[in-house]
């Protein structure tokens, strides 16, 4: 792989991660959001694989495959099943409406570029130049976690945060040891499984899956 192809491919894949994150803010249909998440998982795996090919790192390639399977296939699959429990589920009234969310996402992206400038300046390279994209994904994910009402959207936000962190680690350190990535991926899987039970229970008890209905934490 020559340098120009490598740079282009990496930019494309990392960009896809951020774009899919912003798309989750844009779309209301929960199933579409899950599709975006799947797309992001695949892009993330692509980043890992491109880095692995560039640096001839077998372990990183293995990590990339693991990410592809867990975040690209299994987690979105499970979420899709949850979404299917409530077929017309839409993020009808997010706490911040869609246009405002998109503007805010733009602000967050600018902020992350400002913040990451220092990190990039320490070791300028093709990979570290894209660190702001990872930070922006984290912030957009967190924003989604805060402003969306449906349980599934909240978990998608959480996974966005996780994906953003994973992207930053790939770009900065060429991947963490496999065991760490395995651990964090399994965590995400567990969260999704827990969510499944939660949504089923909420559906039975409240007839809807908006977390607004739960104020039991009070007192």
């Amino acid at each position: 792989m020559n340098a120009a192809t490598y740079t282009g491919a990496l930019e494309l894949a990392a960009g896809a991660v951020l774009v899919s994150a912003v798309m989750t803010l844009w779309r209301r249909q929960v199933r579409t959001i899950v599709t975006m998440l799947s797309l992001q998982g695949i892009s993330l795996a692509a980043v890992a694989l491109i880095l692995a090919a560039h640096e001839h790192d077998g372990a990183l390639a293995l990590t990339g495959l693991l990410v592809l399977i867990v975040k690209g296939v299994i987690v979105p699959g499970l979420l899709r099943r949850i979404a299917r429990l409530d077929p017309r589920s839409r993020e009808t009234t997010p706490l911040v409406n869609v246009p405002a969310s998109l503007v805010f996402a733009a602000v967050l992206i600018v902020l992350s570029y400002v913040v990451s400038a220092r990190v990039t300046s320490v070791a300028p390279s093709v990979a570290t130049r894209m660190v702001p994209i990872g930070v922006a994904t984290v912030l957009v994910g967190y924003f989604m976690l805060v402003t969306r009402r449906r349980a599934v959207s909240k978990v998608v936000g959480l996974i966005l945060v996780d994906n953003g962190i994973a992207l930053v680690t790939f770009l900065l350190t060429s991947g963490v040891p496999l065991i760490v990535e395995l651990g964090s991926s399994l965590d995400v899987l567990l969260v999704v499984v827990v969510l499944q039970f939660l949504v089923i229970n909420m559906g039975e008890q409240l007839r809807r899956s908006e977390l607004d209905q739960m104020k039991e934490l009070h007192d």
């Binding site: 706490l95 967190y142 924003f143 976690l145 805060v146 402003t147 009402r149 977390l211 607004d212 739960m214 104020k215 039991e216 934490l217 009070h218 007192d219």
Partner: peptide
């Protein structure tokens, strides 16, 4: 500042 709303708690963190 404690009203039981999960959105509010998440917003604090954000």
């Amino acid at each position: 500042i404690q009203n039981g709303s999960i959105h509010r708690y998440l917003a604090f963190g954000f």
